[in-house]
Amino acid sequence: MNLGIKGPDGGPIPPDSPLARALALPPEAPLSAGFADRVVAAAEARPVPLPKLRRGSGWRAGRRLAIGLAGIAALASAAAATGLLRQLAVPVPSAGTVWAHLSGTAKSAPAKAAKRAPVETPAAPAKVEIEESIDTPEELAEAFRRADTLRADRRAERLRIIDQRIAGEIERRSAAGLRVPSAQEVARLRERIAAAEALREQRADARVAARREVLQRKVEAGEAITREDFAAPPRGLRDLPEASAAFERLRRVPPRERRAALQAMPAEERGAVLEEFRTLRAALNPPTTPPSPEAQPKSGD
């Protein structure tokens, strides 16, 4: 008999108590004959249990994820390869850029300079493709038309970058808590920029007109204009002496670095380079044009 919790009401039931006698049951009915046979027969007749449901395990979910990622990567690669992303203005980094970022070998300064390059040099010069030599006025006119289109695009790009830089500077100053130029100041700045741009265009137009006269005369004389002729520098530059290595090196770097390099030069070398610079400016400007103050070397440009 089990001994459980003792208590006045819930304690164990003594074997010889009236309650124990009342609880006495007659012997239980035995299992019916052939019970074991029936159980075994029923067991053997049961269908084979179905395998467990294959609920998504970690690997199965991971495999689906991997397949999905691979599919997305394939679609993205196909879109990049077909130029679709470029049409949608989505930047696609080159494999070298991606690898440089992944391996940590990307140089921050050159990357920054490369990023700013379009700002410093307003528009990357897209070459006008001339497949064969130009030897008819029609072909020359077509070449001029393409050049004009390119120049217009470059000018629009320059103006767009100027606007972008002005807006960016205003935003930067606003975020830094600095004084933000007023609308009048911005308007004056834009006027100065427009004036400089107009002067620049005027000089460029003069150079282009002079160059085109030369080219037209060559075509009229029956000469074929080659690619080199079309892209040749203005006549004045051909008369210049060979540019020094220091001058070439300075000419290819941004203005800020150019100023720093000039200041770091010995006095003699700096004087030679500046003289070379003045010679170049004088050759580029028509002899009748009075020397402009911008030609002074104080700016270092």
């Binding site: 919790i5 009401d9 819930g10 164990p12 309650l19 009342a22």
Partner: peptide, 12 residues
């Protein structure tokens, strides 16, 4: 079990 025994005694 305690409650069962108590109920059993009450029924008895």
């Amino acid at each position: 079990l305690h409650r069962a025994r108590a109920a059993l005694r009450l029924a008895f």
